[in-house]
Design a protein around this nucleic acid. Structure first.
Lengths: 160, 160
DNA sequence: GAATAACCAACTATCTCAGTCAAGTATATA
DNA sequence: TATATACTTGACTGAGATAGTTGGTTATTC
């Protein structure tokens, strides 16, 4: 089972897209600035997200990425699946050949857990996240900081 | 969040202990043979399991490890916690300083997920696993294979 | 005192993540 | 058409963790 910064970054970036959907295509440079994720790393992630049909791209000046579907039709599990290989908790990938061609003792336990996690993440759409008050709060703060570059410097300075 | 072979090995080994609790202390060499886990690696894992008070050890010939409590008082979550640092899915460890001193957009999502996983694994005890028909089936096969034909008589004799 | 098995501490090999760098290619606008 | 913008691709790197190895030392039993 794999659930690391990679999947977190992907979900965060997708949520950023959903929050700014009304602005037209969003460049990765914008997301990079707002969310503090390396631009080149975002490029790698979005390559996979595009291959999975979760986003579509617009090239040229003013271009960027947008969600391929509406936010209520994109689920967190799909995003994590797109950048990681899977959210499978078993070592055998469900093939039951964990221990020398046979099932290991705890095979069914990890199968159940995988189902549990996948079920949870499959029930949460981007629209759900966008609707959450805490998310809107954080997003407002980020947009604020983006709009006023001088204040951003001041904020960073005050953190040190 | 971290859930890898390390945690799987630990749970498998603990379940092996629970299954053979009636034989007295179980040596790591036995577990290594039955479950196909490196002996030296098991030593590392059991060092942590012992520090966490999940198992007790008996040194010398005929020695080994046994569960420190009964199987219905040891939960999978405790085992995973003992060998990994945590089953926390957030990057900040709940400190809300994920994105430059502030909460990242998806902070609450990962908090919820952590709670979900921990809740699931906290509800499953070793006794639950031992009771499962599939587990007993696999365990029976492993015990059969463990004893070479000549040794089977001795094993059966030692059980009486 | 020999055999057994827990305990301990380095050490290594491999893998993945996270990020960088340096090329490209496509396209809208001037 | 020229050019700036922005996406695309692939190779590369460092850090850190996993998984496993080696070589011991203690403690206990026969």
């Amino acid at each position: 089972m794999r659930l690391t910064t990679k999947g977190r970054y992907a979900v965060t970036a997708m949520l950023d897209l959903a929050l700014h959907a009304d602005r037209g295509p969003i460049s990765l440079a914008d997301i990079s600035k707002r969310q503090g994720i390396s631009l080149s790393y975002l490029e790698q992630l979005f390559s996979r997200l595009r291959q999975s049909g979760l986003v579509s791209s617009v090239r040229g000046p003013g271009g960027g990425y947008r969600l391929a579907r509406t936010g209520d039709d994109i689920y967190v599990a799909q995003i994590v699946d797109a950048v990681n290989e899977s959210v499978d908790a078993t070592s055998c990938g469900g093939n039951s050949d964990c221990a020398g061609g046979e099932q290991c003792l705890t095979h069914y336990l990890w199968c159940d857990l995988s189902e549990q996690i996948h079920g949870f993440l499959s029930g949460i759409s981007l629209a759900h996240l966008v609707a959450r008050a805490e998310v809107q709060e954080v997003a407002r703060r980020q947009d604020m900081r983006e709009a006023a570059p001088e204040e951003k410097v001041a904020v960073i300075g005050s953190l040190q």
